[in-house]
């Protein structure tokens, strides 16, 4: 190795050290606290606490709501990406508008704003009343939480699907048409299979934040619907039971690891999640 390339290799050291101290070590701390009790002795109680009816119910609710909002995100995002991917270069700046710009308005406020749209005296019910239609109970429901999840995580579904669709060579689609496939056949047998990596990536990107959120349920669920994220958050900030909180986090980590494996199996180019 020449002297300069040794110097070049050393440029990475600060980040490697950073990654060890702030990415890897903290994860092991969660494992350590999750598998020990207050005295530091090994125990599985914190992890098994997930079986406690209240915890199991919260986990189940989180799974169901997150799956439902992931499905809605997919149904909304796929047609949108089809349109955008066909419209050429201008769609790139359009994507920035979708993905980045809304984040400059604080995410809590954006989510909270849905309250004034959904609540009893909110915009939707005012409009319904003006049309002499019965008011709808929208806030503090599971539907409200799903809406919040869809709203907050839709960009994570749009980006990978758009990237996968934009990558498809136009000639492949022309070839399908030349060989006599109609639009539906071309879609089902060419476009859809080629976009599957993006779809799977999108699903994994939306499912985890949805399943682990505690903010959306706090803002739009009125504190009545507990997600597993709320349970963990309360263990740390109210009960100060780090062991229990870590043990339940380990349960989440299982889902996250499954997710990462799926993500890695479909992302063969190794290009990462962006």
């Amino acid at each position: 190795m020449s002297k300069t390339s040794k110097h070049t290799a050393m440029l990475g050291l600060p980040y490697y050290a950073w990654a060890i101290v702030f990415i890897i070590v903290p994860l092991f701390m969660v494992v350590y606290y999750g598998l020990t009790d207050k005295t530091g002795a090994f125990t599985l109680d914190n992890v098994m606490a997930i079986a406690h009816p209240a915890h199991a119910k919260a986990l189940w609710t989180s799974l169901v709501l997150s799956l439902e909002s992931t499905a809605v995100c997919l149904l909304l995002a796929y047609p949108l990406c089809l349109v955008l991917a066909r419209s050429g270069k201008s769609s790139n700046s359009f994507l920035v508008l979708f993905l980045i710009v809304p984040m400059w308005m604080n995410f809590l406020l954006r989510t909270y704003a849905w309250q004034s749209i959904l609540e009893k005296t909110g915009i939707i019910n005012t409009a319904l009343a003006a049309l002499h239609l019965p008011p709808q109970h929208l806030i503090n429901t599971k539907g409200g939480i799903i809406l919040g999840m869809v709203y907050d995580f839709l960009p994570f579904m749009i980006l990978p699907i758009y990237n996968a669709l934009a990558k498809i060579d136009r000639n492949v689609i022309h070839a399908a048409h030349d060989l006599g496939a109609d639009d539906l056949q071309t879609f089902l047998r060419v476009i859809l299979p080629l976009s599957m990596p993006g779809v799977i990536s999108g699903i994994t990107m939306v499912f985890i934040p949805g399943m682990t959120t505690f903010v959306i349920s706090a803002l739009l669920g009125g504190g009545k619907i507990l997600l597993i994220g709320n349970v963990i958050e309360q263990e740390f900030t109210l009960a100060y039971d780090w062991n229990m909180g870590s043990g339940l986090s380990l349960v989440l980590l299982v889902f996250i690891v499954i997710n990462i494996v799926i993500q890695m199996l479909t992302d063969k180019d190794g290009e990462g999640v962006l």
Partner: peptide, 18 residues
């Protein structure tokens, strides 16, 4: 990729424990 794929709540509590 870990911080991007990990749930924010787990990243948060992990750093808090550190």
């Amino acid at each position: 990729n870990v911080p991007m794929l990990n749930a924010d709540i787990v990243t948060g509590v992990a750093l808090m424990l550190l």
